Simulated assay, not measured.
Amino acid sequence: MRALTIRQPWAGAIVHQTKRVENRTWKLPAAHHGTRILIHAGAQPDRDAQVQGPHLDVFSAIVGIATITDCHWADEWDCCGPWAFNQTYHWTLGDVIALPEPIPAKGALGFWTPTEEAVNAALRQDTAVAW
């Protein structure tokens, strides 16, 4: 299982709010379409973000799990809702769950492979979450 590092407050907005699109400057590699990934909150916040709410203060930790369901280029604002930016690739996310206990982990740029212990800890929490 791979992980994707996302700066706060965006990682928190994905797992605890309604953000279901990740804006990226690069196209999703075909191998990752339809895969389940871990959502990792990066060590540094996006200081320009204007998002408020609970659970946005966790850093350097795996905070959720999601499935990447689609990727497309967007030429207009809001094609995927209020979180979607213009002139970016939109990676749409489904089956998003927040982990009850964040798992400390050092992230990386792009997709990265977490330790086996971190993956197992996340999957144990995934099965414990009531759907």
Rank of each mutant, 00 (worst) to 15 (best):
D75Q: 11
T88D: 07
S60T: 10
A122Y: 03
D95W: 02
W73F: 12
H32G: 08
A118R: 02
V63M: 00
L93R: 01
H33W: 14
P29T: 10
L56K: 08
V21C: 05
K106Q: 13
H33T: 14
H32C: 10
W26T: 11
C80R: 12
A105H: 09
H55Y: 13
F59V: 06
D75A: 15
R36P: 00
L56G: 04
V96K: 00
T88E: 03
T18Y: 05
P114Q: 04
L28G: 04
T18S: 09
T35Y: 04
G53F: 09
D78N: 11
A13N: 11
I68Y: 02
W91Y: 10
T67F: 02
G34T: 08
P114T: 06
A61G: 03
V21S: 01
R124I: 15
A84H: 09
E101L: 12
I62K: 00
T25N: 12
W91K: 04
H32S: 12
H40A: 02
D78W: 08
L123A: 02
A121C: 09
S60Y: 08
H90K: 10
V63C: 01
P29V: 11
A121G: 06
H40P: 01
C71A: 15
V15G: 01
A74N: 12
P102V: 13
V21N: 05
A84R: 09
K27Q: 12
H90Y: 12
W77G: 11
Q17E: 12
W77L: 13
A74R: 10
D48A: 15
Q44K: 12
A66D: 00
I97P: 00
T35N: 04
D46R: 05
L123N: 05
L123E: 01
E116P: 03
T18R: 10
D78L: 06
A98F: 03
Y89P: 03
R47I: 15
A84D: 13
P102W: 04
A74G: 14
T113K: 05
H72V: 09
L38G: 00
W73N: 08
G12T: 07
G53V: 11
V58R: 02
R24G: 11
W26M: 08
A74H: 06
R36N: 02
V58M: 10
E101W: 15
P104C: 10
V51C: 07
I103L: 01
D70R: 10
A43V: 11
A31H: 14
G107L: 03
A105G: 07
I97M: 01
E76C: 12
L93M: 02
A66P: 01
